[in-house]
Amino acid sequence: MRIHSLGFMAAAVLAFGISGCGRKSAEKNVPPPAPTAVVNPATAGTISGNVVLDGPVPSFHPIDMSAEPACVQANPTPVIPPIVVTGEHGALANVVVYVKAGLGEYRYDVPQTPALLDQKGCMYDPRVVAVVEGQPLEIRNSDATVHNIHPMPRINHAWNRSEEPGSPPFRVTFDHPETAIPIMCNVHPWMRAYLFVFDNPYFAVTAKTGTFELKGLPPGTYTIEAWQEHFGIQDQTVTLGPKESKSISFVYRSDRSHWNYRPRSSGGHGVE
């Protein structure tokens, strides 16, 4: 048996060595030169606004956590999946608002303060997290049970890592801009988060107030996009003059749902 196990490992290592070599050679493509211009703060403006939901909040079935006693213990009352979270007057939380198009080539500082993604009560907190490429994302496990963290990017490098209770948090970075990367825990298949990676600092994730602010934008005409996991995306075009501030609103109608995620690698079950 031991010899067989070693044989399996050797074959797997060999196979991965080969596939890894292929990947590395692909990565050797010469990247375009990095931009050197910086945004002039003297002319920069701001786009702010809010996101609201028009209509009743859709209802979702409570999560069945009975397969995991630690999760049941951590949640004395049934947990409704936070797919649509609203505040007062229909203010919509967990909406990512960002500049989709119109930005020139500028150089930005990469924040060194990590963004946080916690696993608490067998749920991800926050549900939606956004970082700048190269910015650390710190992943914690505050639960009394084990989790695996499995981002499923289309562009960035995919990985899968376990995090046992009490283990120290770990940090990862993502090197390429990419929107709505699903992150799931295969131990607890109801756990879902979304990660956004941007190559600029002009993005915001709304809180329960539904408000956002994109500060320090150079003058220009921009396509501003809002993404919500259940209702999908909306675009608006905004022209910003020097030192100008503009306010816009995104309104989602609750009768127009948009399930925009199907697991590509974990079976045909089209959850969320």
């Binding site: 695996n148 499995h150 899968n160 890592r161 295969n186 131990v187 690698s265 974990s266 079976g267 959850v271």
Partner: peptide
Amino acid sequence: NLAGDSVP
């Protein structure tokens, strides 16, 4: 059960 990656 979407458990294919539960053991990394």
